[in-house]
Amino acid sequence: MIEFLDVYRQHFGEWVPELLIACIGTLELMALSFVLASAIGLVVALMRVSRSRLLRAVAIVYVEVMRGMPALVILFLIYFGLGGLGVDWLKFTSYEAAILGLGLQGGAVLGEVFRSGIEALHLGQMEAALSLGMTPATAMRWIILPQAWRIVLPPVANYAIGLLKDTAVCAIIAAPELMLRAKDIASSSFRPMHLFVLAAILYFIMSYPLSIVARRLEARLARGR
């Protein structure tokens, strides 16, 4: 045990700074995917509740497909699959593929979250808005969505935590984030256990504040009812 910890003491100075820089890559990746997923999710949710059967069908198919596959498969399809077709503009870098892949799948997850937020609101709200002469679009903008976003905050926070952990999978397509760096240092120093435990600790430090926030949001929502 002592020898185990001793290795950390020896290498702390060289490992930790590198891993911390990689953490920034992870957080960046997470943030950009989150933004993409939120944008797609909002569109998907609005399509899902629209009066057009075609739009509803497209949204349903999108969600089923994106949620029916592992994130790894989506990443591989984008990075290796599209990249292997020989078309220049489809040759994404691993970073781009990572954001695209996580964002597309996240869009399906958040789409369902946003939809349940919208549907949780009483039908009466929509009818009151329509009776006052608002178009469905105006009603969405000023009455439904402003209420729905508060309801969806806890599941969105939970999604964000999951997203942070999913960035690790992007190491498999060599996207620049924490797991990849840990793997590289582990192979060059022949110390896999030390590095992966260190990586786990860093992930935990990054996700813990988020999970506190998520829990507080859940409590606040439960109280408000």
Binding site: A168, M179, M193, A200, Y203
Partner: peptide, 23 residues
């Protein structure tokens, strides 16, 4: 629960497969 939910499954797999083998 906190540890398992606060770290990626991939990292946990790496620790069990590569890490333990190292030990």
């Amino acid at each position: 629960i906190e540890v398992m939910r606060g770290t990626p499954a991939l990292t946990q797999l790496f620790i069990i497969y590569f890490g333990l083998s190292d030990l």
